[in-house]
Simulated scan of single mutants.
Amino acid sequence: MTLMESALPAEGAPGIRRIELDVTGMSCRACSGRVQRTLNKIDGVHASVNLGTRVATIDASRDVSVAELCAAVEKAGCSAAQRPEGSTASLTVDSGGQRNVLSRLVSAVFGH
């Protein structure tokens, strides 16, 4: 458990809410890591970013706005929008992500 996790009350605690953002523009682990680090720099925020689903799951204090979270994602070089409540993570890959996966596959097979 990190210091931040121990200092932040769990989701469901008074004053904490869970927010999910759809994040676009991530193409690698470095991108998702940068988004996660940027979000976690905000006071009262604990974020986890999943590159595969392109979703940032955030436990945040009630005084942190969705707009502030989206602005932080943009500062990290990506775009974000709040997921509708009750939606499930989509496993679809945007066209840029498909090209990236295909390029890595070709490189792995042919050694380029």
Rank of each mutant, 00 (worst) to 15 (best):
M4R: 14
M4Q: 14
E5M: 14
E5Q: 15
S6G: 09
S6F: 15
A7S: 12
L8I: 13
L8C: 03
P9H: 15
A10Q: 12
A10T: 13
E11M: 11
P14D: 15
P14N: 14
P14H: 15
G15W: 15
R17C: 04
R17F: 07
I19H: 08
I19M: 04
E20I: 03
L21E: 00
D22C: 04
V23P: 00
T24F: 01
G25H: 05
G25W: 06
M26S: 02
R29E: 08
R29G: 10
A30K: 13
A30C: 07
G33Q: 06
R34L: 09
V35Y: 05
R37K: 15
R37C: 02
R37G: 02
R37V: 08
T38S: 08
T38W: 02
T38N: 04
L39Q: 02
N40L: 05
G44S: 02
G44P: 00
V45L: 04
V45G: 03
A47K: 03
S48K: 13
V49G: 04
T53E: 06
T53G: 05
R54N: 10
A56T: 07
A56Y: 03
T57A: 07
T57L: 04
I58E: 01
A60N: 08
S61K: 15
S61D: 06
S61I: 09
S61V: 14
S61T: 15
R62A: 12
S65V: 11
S65A: 11
V66R: 02
A67V: 11
L69A: 03
L69R: 04
C70Q: 15
C70P: 01
C70S: 14
A72P: 00
V73M: 07
V73N: 06
E74G: 13
K75W: 05
A76I: 07
A76F: 02
G77Q: 06
S79F: 09
S79P: 00
Q82Y: 03
Q82K: 14
P84Q: 15
E85T: 08
E85I: 04
G86P: 01
G86T: 10
S87R: 07
A89F: 05
S90V: 06
T92I: 09
V93A: 08
D94L: 05
S95A: 13
G97I: 12
R99V: 14
R99C: 05
R99M: 12
N100R: 14
V101M: 10
V101L: 10
R104W: 05
R104L: 08
L105N: 08
L105D: 08
V106L: 11
S107C: 09
V109P: 00
F110C: 06
F110G: 02
F110H: 10
H112V: 14
